[in-house]
Design a protein around this nucleic acid. Structure first.
Lengths: 152, 152
DNA sequence: CTCTTGGGTTGGAGATTCCAACTCAGGAGG
DNA sequence: CCTCCTGAGTTGGAATCTCCAACCCAAGAG
């Protein structure tokens, strides 16, 4: 049976919530992280994330059904698979980068565990900007519109 | 008792994982979302997220201990509180925006439930760029460095 | 004097997650 | 031939977490 929200709840229509329905369970984001690191096989993903194997199986199936990853057979008899990101999965890189930046600033400011070199040569510091004007997005985001908005 | 990883696991040192330890449980991100929408009180957050009240209490306490939110008393007798984002909490806005963008593109492409107007006048489309060169961050992120990196 | 609002706490049921152990198939070493 | 190792899972049972309605208390409204 699907779990239903409490009787008096009225959840906001929201793409954040919808996205978390796909990747919000424990381990899912770390699975995607491993694929970005180029780790493509079950055992490697299990080891590097810390997920138990049964749960990892469930997460991989769900990510596959959600169109975020696909698996490719690289051996029959016995069947062996590698996992890959789809284009939609690769676009989750933006989410991972903002999570990484926050943790680097607020938890590991003394010693960031992983840094990425950007193609421009600099150590990558991701910044979220408005596509229209190029200014930082967060501070200038005002007045939400749409059916997900509530009358205060 | 804290849950321990499986015996054969060797989790990667990673700011993404560390950040998810703070906000990765169900409802936490949606609580932060509500604070960005200006909803500051327990009942409103419960209604708009769909979280049950006991779990919401636990999440609010954890977010508070993590330095992401703080609560301010606006009434004694009976004690009543409003929740607010700290500066660290406000910086999670970048994470929310990338989650929002992904869901808008891949789940709700026909009808995004909430859009934000940016201070420049345009509808906000968040983009993640390299702070050094201004080019998109994701495609150009190569060769990770640091103790969180594994030998393939 | 009852109802509503606000901010929780409690109890018990049900769902999820944990982890070790097991499977099956092929290849390597001895 | 016999055993170990790798890969990709499955299975069982225990521990943990989540759900949700019901309860609590205090103040204000009708």
């Amino acid at each position: 049976m699907m779990t239903m929200p409490p009787k008096d709840a009225d959840p906001r229509a929201c793409s954040i919530a919808d996205t978390l329905d796909l990747i919000g369970e424990r381990w899912s984001v770390l699975v995607v992280r491993e694929l970005f690191h180029g780790v493509r096989r079950f055992d490697g993903i299990a080891r590097n994330t810390g997920a138990s194997r049964d749960i990892l199986t469930a997460r991989l199936r769900k990510l596959e059904h959600s169109g975020i990853i696909y698996r490719e057979q690289y051996s029959d008899r016995p069947a062996r698979y590698e996992y890959h990101l789809t284009e939609a999965g690769r676009e989750l890189g933006d989410v991972l980068l903002t999570l990484l930046k926050w943790g680097d600033r607020h938890i590991n400011s003394d010693d960031p565990p992983v840094t990425w070199t950007h193609s421009c040569g600099a150590d990558l510091v991701p910044e979220v900007v408005c596509a229209a004007c190029g200014e930082p997005a967060r501070e200038g985001a005002h007045t939400p519109h749409g059916r997900g908005v509530r009358p205060a």
